[in-house]
Computed example of a mutant assay.
Amino acid sequence: MSDGGGDRLVDGFRLVVFDLDGVIYLIDRPIPGAVEAVGRLRAGGHLVAYATNNASRRSSEVAELLTGMGVPARPEEVLTSAAAAAELLRDRLPAGAAVLVVGADALRAEIRAVGLRPVGRADEEPVAVVQGYGPQVGWAELAEAAVAVRSGATWVATNTDRTLPSPRGPLPGNGALVAALRTALDRDPDLVVGKPEPALFATAARRADGAGALVVGDRLDTDIEGARRAGLPSLLVLTGVHGVVDLLAAPPQARPTYVSVDLAGLFDPDAVVRVPGEPTAGGWSVAVADDALEVSGSGRPLDALAALCALAWSTAEAALLPVRAASPAAERALRALGVPD
């Protein structure tokens, strides 16, 4: 890594906590290198956990999906926002209370598993509404939720991810559906359970028994911010939702500790960088010129990224500037990082 160490990043941690969508798989296809990366971690004696905001599958279903992709996983290694939301409601409501579920069957199953009664209509007098992602969610379910919340039901969202990564590009996530209900109700949910709230990561980190945990994610506003709220270091991989331009504009609470193109950064010191670096380091120089962040010099693309972060994060104005190459090597590096021309 460019911060001077020759050791593998993963050697500093007992536990690695992965986000799923955009890190391990896209919808139902493993991301290249993910199967091998998890296998290497297990072979090296590391603990593995998965923390996902996607509430459309139960932990056992996620574990089965991962195992089918060649990533052996146990249900107890999977932490979902659906299960976390159900446990939160269990702790707040009397046994058998009616909860209106907007989402997939997995979320209904989690509500039922904690002794609450999932319902689908507002006239069944639910005391709470829980809203999670489900590909079949439509106007009718949102309408029932709106009526229930207006009647006094507590509104809990499993997460507010605006999009889901997919091979076809970002698709509407639960946050988009929450936004529709927020518009209709002119108010926010009473509680949001999933990332960036720290609960999922804090629960996972306890399994490391103080030996160190690293969060790996593709979203700055959920994975990385959630890791920071939980007091954990994080690795941003560029295989999912957020890329370099998003990283440069990230607010302080959503800035990762490390960045790599993919999961190879866990094992290869040359495939990961600590951010921010210095504006002039690793053979690169970044300066503000003609209302742009101008990159000159040559070297490792990731070192150019670290230098860019140093300057972009120095002021709010710099974070909004476009990036421009001032040398052929810089042009190649920015292209390798996916920075648009």
Rank of each mutant, 00 (worst) to 15 (best):
A109K: 06
A104N: 05
A85K: 01
E76S: 12
A86E: 05
D91P: 07
G103E: 04
A84G: 10
T80D: 04
V101G: 01
V78N: 04
E77K: 08
G70M: 05
E87S: 01
L107Y: 03
L100Y: 03
A73P: 13
D105F: 09
L66I: 08
A84Q: 04
A84E: 08
M69H: 13
R90P: 02
P75S: 09
M69C: 08
A83E: 13
L89Y: 04
D91G: 14
E77C: 06
A104M: 10
V78E: 00
V99H: 02
L79R: 12
L88T: 12
T67R: 12
G96H: 08
R108L: 02
P75Y: 08
A63V: 02
D91E: 15
A104V: 10
A84C: 09
E77N: 09
L79N: 01
T67G: 10
S60Y: 11
V71M: 13
G70S: 08
V101F: 05
A82H: 04
E76K: 10
A83Y: 03
V62F: 14
G68E: 00
V101P: 04
L88H: 14
G103H: 11
A73C: 14
R92T: 10
G103K: 03
A85M: 07
T80Q: 07
R90I: 06
V62K: 01
R108Q: 12
L89H: 03
R90K: 14
I111T: 02
L89E: 00
A106M: 10
A95R: 15
L66F: 07
P72K: 13
A106R: 01
V99L: 01
A73E: 00
A63T: 05
L79V: 14
R92L: 15
R108Y: 08
E76I: 09
T67S: 15
V101R: 08
V62Y: 14
E77L: 07
A83R: 15
G68Y: 08
L79Y: 12
E110Q: 00
A85T: 07
L93K: 11
R92E: 15
A97N: 07
L66R: 02
T67V: 12
A104D: 13
A83M: 11
A85I: 02
R92A: 15
A98R: 15
A84N: 01
L65E: 11
V62R: 00
A95C: 12
G103C: 12
A97S: 15
A97H: 01
V101T: 05
